[in-house]
Write a protein that binds this DNA or RNA. Structure first.
Lengths: 207, 207
DNA sequence: ACGGGACATGACTGATATGTCATATTCATT
DNA sequence: AATGAATATGACATATCAGTCATGTCCCGT
């Protein structure tokens, strides 16, 4: 499809009016792609939804792929902010884990379109998708390593753990955030957290 | 795109020659879609890869979506067989868990194309994707419930656990099966299993 | 060895979407 | 109120692709 990366002809808006239009297009794209998927959402659908002309699109984006990349970054920023706020009061790594998991599920349910857009980016531009998760994984990893150092959690492979925990959250977000949109999220997060914290293996404490 | 479901004109092959051609097309589609993604893989690309004429495609499939559905089913069958064999010798649920996880990662690394096809089905036909995971989840759930009954594992929400474990495996399969294709899988599976079985929380046993 | 159902071909049509471009409008600045 | 840079328009040329169809080949059963 699009090959060259050199010389962005216009791209970044120079006035607040331009910035506003760019945002309108991004918002429309989020809705359109989230609803109908990347393939079905055409540039003309998006610009119609944004109430701008087709040509206007190419003032700010080089292609449909380009918008999607931008949307993945947007999702990363928003989710990060949301999780930071949600885990701010946590007094330990495990408390942060419990709160973060619930917050993630709530975020997924509140932002189904963005959620789908990120998942779809995997097939449109694997490198942004990769980077998206890598960023989260890096943070996650450091948090786990720190908690190990503070003797809050058992020692283990922090990398594998970080990715495993992300996968767990993503699937639950899918299932209970996008599919089963009515079941209460708290019990789900609690049940998952129980497994994360205590494991499946039976011990002597419980009957 | 395609709307009506009634009256399949030909579809199912009546001779072994036909069945062979159908398989050639399915194999080609698996490679093409796995490599280039659903959008980029055109019918003509697929038939070229399969070395049959374009029209032949429509003897056995109604659309590109149709092939994808078939490929998801194929993945389900193959993976199920693989996991059944891998966990056959396990003497407990947790042993099955450990073996199954490793087997899954190995399967993902050995079948990257099928793996991607399944993930992409999510955006082409959410219902098959949903069903695919639902089938696995149902089995998983019963296994967990049975293990609870046999007092092998702690009691808990089997549904949430099943989906959480699937998500964990899927993400690790992605990361260590498709992205990091050289790191040994055994340690990854072991590390993940350790978290699943024992949890993150520190206990009195370990120093 | 021939009749007929199954299978196979590939050129062609219609529909749709992308990205361009000549032209028009806005608006801050002078 | 004139200027020009930034922004906006929408018709259109171009490309691509899905699905059809008239025609032809294979091969089993008799």
């Amino acid at each position: 499809m699009s090959r060259r990366e050199l010389t962005p002809p216009t791209l970044a808006p120079k006035t607040s009016r331009g910035e506003l239009t760019r945002q309108k297009i991004l918002d429309a794209a989020e809705r359109e792609i989230g609803r109908k998927g990347f393939a079905e959402a055409s540039i003309s659908t998006i610009t119609a939804e944004a109430v701008v002309a087709q040509g206007t699109f190419y003032l700010y984006f080089r292609s449909k792929e380009d918008v999607l990349r931008e949307l993945v970054l947007r999702m990363g920023r928003r989710l990060r902010r949301h999780l930071t706020l949600a885990t701010a009061g946590a007094t330990s790594r495990l408390e942060a884990e419990r709160a973060g998991l619930l917050a993630f599920l709530e975020f997924a349910r509140a932002n189904p379109n963005l959620y789908r857009v990120v998942e779809e980016s995997q097939f449109v531009d694997p490198s942004v998708y990769h980077r998206y998760y890598d960023d989260f994984a890096r943070n996650y990893r450091s948090a786990l390593v720190a908690a190990e150092g503070a003797r809050e959690i058992r020692r283990g492979n922090a990398d594998v753990r970080a990715w495993a925990l992300m996968g767990l959250a993503v699937m639950l977000g899918h299932r209970y955030g996008l599919w089963e949109t009515t079941v209460p999220l708290k019990p789900v997060a609690d049940a998952a957290f129980d497994m994360i914290a205590n494991g499946l293996e039976r011990r002597d404490d419980d009957a």
